[in-house]
Design a protein around this nucleic acid. Structure first.
Length: 467
RNA sequence: GGCGGCUUAGCCAAGCGGUAAGGCGGAGGUCUGCAAAACCUCUAUUCUCCGGUUCGAUUCCGGAAGCCGCCUCCA
């Protein structure tokens, strides 16, 4: 099966063909750094991580750009409230964002350009739009005239004649030619404090959509392969990016638009007022391992709404224990007499896993293939029908799959040097030899208190960390 | 008001015209001093509801109910 993605532009699954064979250039909408990201945000970043990792798995060279929006209304408001500079306000959020990416095992993009570092590029686009008659200026504000861009609405499938002034249109934008026109550049006023840039367009700051047009074309070229974001970005953000980029350059902006659905919590929209609003730290403070959060956010296909529940998080943790136990136990396995079945299981795993993800990143059957494999190989092991050579090939297959999933926990289980743990295990072995089981069980209980779980095997006692 | 998505076992979640993957949970069994890990068996006669098309529908069509969105700065 060829790799297929559901393209928001055409509302259909399409075979993926990058502009340059073997290379993928993609732009993934990043955070606005005005507060800490919530788990809904991370659902999007995890989806993008899956996309990126699977493309690499398929052998593509990936160039991913993720923007950091470090200038917008909320950020300006924050700088004024806290009486700090723009960069002093945003830098802690930027730092925390990258920490959280690491915590969730999200692979870094090639580039994280910041909006504030690309003001000249944005000004250039506005100048091009002005020259083409697609933009106009009123009192230092520059707007895009969407009526001059006939295909406006093609991504969101919105008929612009149906767009009407809504309650959410700010009162200070009354001077626009049309209420649906959007701001490219906003003139400075006193509410902006000392946040402004002196440019050919005057003293002011960029509109929200402009940065993505400017930075994507700078780093990925005027036309590139994939652009992603949450479904809420389809309109107006991505629609406006298309208008800006295609209007300024007169050529197609992006070939494949992928949007991930939102996450809801316990069947309800996540909101602060419902008390079901969670940042990553909120979840981790409850004692869940980060990889369980990764698993929950990854395990529902990206175009399905994801219902985040703590019951689901518990289930994810148990499933990860099984996967990590499987991997560790397979690594420690000595080998037996081959029944000839293992290579068929390996082949089936790799085929089914790849076929599932080829189909618009359909993760559920891919995970189904993995758990089938775990059961099949464990059965062969239990029956002594897995050879040492087959064991190596099975491990390689699992490791290959883990380059996409990233579910294996490093340094989770023995063997590893830890004098205290090793001494306690030795003391317990002594007690067991004397058949002093109460003493042995006491040591085991002490280790459990320390978060260490023991497993007695024919080749000795192994230990692992409690997940 | 306009446009769109979803509803499958206790929970999560595939399948989308030929008789329900997988995970978690639960029950029983094997192994073990006991655990842990692992293996085996069982756990939806049925896919929100009501009609229709069809030899046959969870899958297609129509309608209803519930939930979640977008309609100018929220992933």
């Amino acid at each position: 099966m060829p790799l297929q993605f559901f393209n928001t532009l055409t509302r259909a699954k399409e075979e993926f063909r990058p502009l340059i064979p073997g290379q993928v250039r993609m732009y993934t909408c990043g955070p606005t750094v005005y507060n800490f990201a919530h788990i809904g945000n991370f659902r999007a970043y995890i989806f993008e991580d899956l996309l990126r990792r699977f493309l690499k798995y398929k052998g593509f060279k990936v160039t991913q750009v993720m923007n950091l929006t470090d200038i917008d209304d909320k950020i300006i408001k924050g700088t004024i409230e806290l009486k700090v500079s723009l960069s002093d306000f945003t830098s802690p959020f930027k730092k925390k964002f990258f920490q959280d990416l690491d915590t969730l095992g999200i692979e870094r993009a090639e580039l994280y350009p910041e909006a504030t570092a690309h003001i000249p590029e944005m000004v250039e686009i506005v100048k091009k739009l002005l020259a083409k008659g697609l933009a106009y200026e009123i009192d230092g504000n520059y707007y895009y005239s969407i009526i001059k861009f006939p295909s406006y609405g093609k991504l969101a499938h919105i008929d612009i004649t149906g767009l009407k002034a809504g309650a959410r249109v700010a009162a200070d934008e009354y001077e626009k030619e049309s209420v649906s026109d959007f701001a490219l550049w906003k003139a400075w006023d006193e509410r902006d404090g000392d946040v402004y840039w002196e440019t050919e367009l005057g003293k002011g700051r960029p509109g929200w959509h402009l940065e993505c047009s400017a930075m994507s074309m700078k780093y990925l070229g005027e036309t590139f392969d994939i652009h992603t974001g949450g479904v809420d970005n389809i309109f107006p953000h991505h629609e406006n990016e298309i208008a800006q980029s295609e209007g300024a350059l007169g050529r197609k902006f992006v070939n494949y638009w992928l949007h991930c659905e939102h996450l809801i919590v316990e069947g309800r929209k996540m909101s602060k007022s419902l008390g079901n609003f969670y940042t990553l730290d909120d979840i981790l403070e409850k004692g869940y391992p980060p990889v369980a959060v990764r698993s929950v956010l990854l395990s529902t296909q990206y175009r399905q709404q994801l219902n985040f529940t703590f019951e689901g998080l518990d289930a994810a943790r148990e499933g990860l224990k099984r996967f990590n136990d499987f991997y560790r136990n397979l690594r420690d396995y000595g080998g037996g007499e081959s029944s000839g079945e293992a290579d068929d299981f390996i082949k089936k795993l790799l085929t089914d896993f790849e076929n599932a993800l080829d189909d618009d990143l359909n993760i559920s059957p891919a995970l189904g293939a993995l758990f089938d494999f775990i059961r099949d190989i464990n059965r062969l092991k239990a029956e002594g029908k897995l050879s040492a050579d087959e064991r190596v090939r099975a491990l390689q297959a699992v490791e290959k799959i883990n380059t996409v999933l990233n579910f294996l926990i490093k340094d989770w289980a023995s063997p590893r040097q830890d004098s205290q743990i090793d001494a306690m295990i030795a003391a317990r072995a002594d007690a067991k030899k004397r058949r002093d089981y109460p003493a042995a069980d006491k040591i085991r209980a002490q280790l459990l208190e320390m978060g260490i779980i023991l497993e007695d095997t024919p080749t000795g006692t192994k230990w692992k960390r409690k997940l």
